[in-house]
Design a binder for these strands. Structure first.
Lengths: 116, 116
DNA sequence: ATTACATATACGAATTTAATGATATAAGAA
DNA sequence: TTCTTATATCATTAAATTCGTATATGTAAT
């Protein structure tokens, strides 16, 4: 799946579309581009977790974690489910997982490979 | 390549490593998470381009484009080569391309597929 | 040496984002 | 009902980012 050729795009209606897509993508990336939020998503990639579990893992204040989660919710990267007092978070869709996997492959795979 | 299990990580030295990787990754993502910079990288994915070409494509001020490029340079997402008066930019490595491809697959492929 | 062109950098104003402490809501237990 | 636990939201401040204007640098041409 090659990236598109400039010639096919320049000055056309496709340019507008490309700009629109870039905006959507950069919005999602903004949500991802934060150390704590990225860690949250990596943990959620393993399966759903309650806010308390996430707090403990990150070792950050409750309100801070909750606000990062709110951000991820608003940008539709995660979904929630309530069970009693707890609210469980999980990745919202496969797109998020795809991006996370790519990031994981680039930044984390080399580490594991080196350690074998 | 599965994402790692929490059990294997929690409380261990691996946690520190994971946090370090998250910081590296989020730094790169911050550079990516900007509409113009993302467009610049998409254009560069096709091949090297001079600053003037990039300016024309984006339709933004010279200093703005140059500053975005500086940011990408500092974060090592692009490299440069001088030829006479012009400076040509290109993607710095395959890691950048991998991430861009994942983003492209998620945000742009569906569009093209739909149009066929 | 002067000029023109391509690109980079400096600086400040405006905007955005993040962290904190305090308060609110919702559920369950007593 | 009151208390406690889990989570969310609000308000304030601090810090980071972005964009514009202006200026500087490097190369080539005259």
């Amino acid at each position: 799946m090659p990236l598109p050729k400039l010639k096919e795009i320049e000055g056309s209606a496709e340019l507008e579309q490309m700009i629109e897509k870039a905006r959507e993508a950069s919005d999602m990336l903004k949500a991802l581009s934060h150390e704590s939020r990225l860690l949250l998503l990596c943990i959620l990639a393993e399966g759903e977790k309650s806010v308390t579990e996430l707090e403990q893992f990150l070792g950050e204040r409750q309100s801070t974690v909750s606000q990062q989660l709110a951000r991820l919710r608003l940008d539709r990267l995660v979904t929630t489910r309530r069970d009693g007092k707890a609210i469980y978070y999980s990745l919202a869709n496969e797109d998020v997982r795809k991006i996370l996997t790519a990031i994981y492959d680039v930044f984390c795979e080399p580490v594991r490979r080196r350690r074998r």
